[in-house]
Design a protein around this nucleic acid. Sequence first.
DNA 1: CCCTCGACCGTAAACGTTTACGATCAGTTC
DNA 2: GAACTGATCGTAAACGTTTACGGTCGAGGG
Lengths: 362, 362
Amino acid sequence: MTGAAVPRGTNRRRPEASIRRKPTINDVAQIAGVSFGTVSRVLNNAPDVSAATRQRVLQVIQDIGYRRNRAATALVTSRPTSIGIVAAGSPRFGPVGTLMALENVARKKGYATTVISAETPYEDSVQAALDTLDDIGVGGIIVIAPVVSMAAAVWNASCRVPVEMIAAGASSTPSVFTYSENQELGARLATQHLIDLGHTDIAHVAGSMDWFDGRVRKRGWEAALRAAGLTPGLCLEGDWTPRWAYETGLQLVRGGTVPQAIFAASDHTALGLIRAFAENGVRVPDDVSIVGFDDIEGSDYFLPPLTTVRQDFTALALMSMEVLVGAMEGREVDRTPIAPTLVVRNSATRAVPLKGQPPKDK
Amino acid sequence: MTGAAVPRGTNRRRPEASIRRKPTINDVAQIAGVSFGTVSRVLNNAPDVSAATRQRVLQVIQDIGYRRNRAATALVTSRPTSIGIVAAGSPRFGPVGTLMALENVARKKGYATTVISAETPYEDSVQAALDTLDDIGVGGIIVIAPVVSMAAAVWNASCRVPVEMIAAGASSTPSVFTYSENQELGARLATQHLIDLGHTDIAHVAGSMDWFDGRVRKRGWEAALRAAGLTPGLCLEGDWTPRWAYETGLQLVRGGTVPQAIFAASDHTALGLIRAFAENGVRVPDDVSIVGFDDIEGSDYFLPPLTTVRQDFTALALMSMEVLVGAMEGREVDRTPIAPTLVVRNSATRAVPLKGQPPKDK
DNA sequence: CCCTCGACCGTAAACGTTTACGATCAGTTC
DNA sequence: GAACTGATCGTAAACGTTTACGGTCGAGGG
């Protein structure tokens, strides 16, 4: 190969210096004694390569540890190579496992994930996150939007790529579609369990109504009650903290208005309630039945072990990624939400007739 | 959710909306009436461009919503533009907040983060993760390696870019350096608290010795005891689950060997212990003092509220990113670990003289 | 008036791929 | 034996930047 008309592809500026530089497609080609075009073909599993040649190239790739430069690939094929995830900074998330599961599915499908946090759930912050992701060249975005203000921000933002929102019970728009677990069903399951146990006075110590989860769980509670011909009783709305629940519980016992049964919006809520009751001699489940929601780690070792609702975050991640990739590739994909399951333990028990009242009183 | 919401700022930011294609540096140049070289200069804050021109170019960039193509940039300058994070799939992680904090710091420093999960803590899995990250062109990698087998895998793996491991008490090597919170100090704090309360019979219900956290917390317990002239008592090693702790607790009460005080390796461990004791009439803290580790959400509403040790994951993320970026840019950076803090609540109390024994015996 | 010098700006080449197209060379077919 | 046909392979031209270098132009020194 003399200097005459060195074709563009050959590595001219480095004879055989063999620096620590990453090998390129040309290095492979040269060693394998083919042109870089051929190497590209084997890289992309394209036809028009003989088995023997393919084998040889593959061998060289293996030997010198060649790895395709993603930037170059991304540059020429605008085909996206990664997926963006924007997560709120909020602590009340699914476990890290959710994120990991998301990544896992994406990787198996050949996409890298880059996650980015929205500093606030408002428009500029969300738009900034979306833009940053767009820069990177993601092919689609999943935003975890537990809070309604964040969802609103997403609806108002603009983005060139498909955006999927994980937000329980939020509505889809043409440009932003939604996926989530069927938390309303979960709430109905929990409430129904209490109903089946014979309770009629079933209160709800709710989460924040700024959260979709809070809204949807409350809705499920109401729906179950109505379906059973019961009128929804007390509903206290707060935040998700054990502290708030504790204080709420205190008020209940002080006011002498502890209900027969409580559907707590989260396990942490249940935890606060239980402590407030325990400190005042109100026994769970003997005096009041409680069921929680989330099945956080350790809830099986609360005092008493908590009957609660479990969401399958891994399945959620799997499905939502399926949906997004489907949208990116223009495929249609089934979008029936995942169903949570009730896990019954010891915090809710059969209703006993209230003292001085006939049972089945209605 | 009425239709009042703007239907997702459709093309609002794209006035003339000529083509769907992203504008390039050439589009900007053409509209601004300069050459692409000039645009590149203003993009990079290079000198040799007059204030007037710079202003005009900036304006055009703003107007047409130009955003620099990262792939192209990455291709020509090999300067890294992102940071990789590999996390084990394990559930026993810090909260999502840790990951988010990591991302946050990185973004502020101008790096994107891409996280990837190692499917197993073994060598091929870890190496694969490292390779994938290398492909993407990250400038440095943070691996969260709680398990010793994973750390070993990292030590044995090869990687062209700086690798930082977050692993409590693991040693640094020339190629892989380590950062973490000072968990041994945390364990000593917890134990010392018990000692200060007058306990002399302080057992440790440990975590798994496959975890750095498990090893280091045990070491801290021993160290505190020795420093106080006490000989370490019972040490039961298990996993981190409440379940195992529960069963261990059961054995303790059945054997009549419940110690005076227990340093539990984690809050979940403490939770299991507490239940086992509660179910058998052993009162916490009256009969046995317990201090946990982690300060998980809700531990302040356990029965009783748990005295425990809190790690500052945000600070950890901040510092470790600082360290990594420092290494990437060849800077020296202070690497003193972060100190956890003891948060005292109600699960540990002053020692009472054992029945039938004189106090201050031994 | 020529030369030099900054300040400003344009241009070519390179980064490592993919894609479209053209070339070569057996083997077939007539 | 000429022309056609696949199968296999090589080549040029992009993709959107950055970098190194070269040019122009007006001002100022001699």
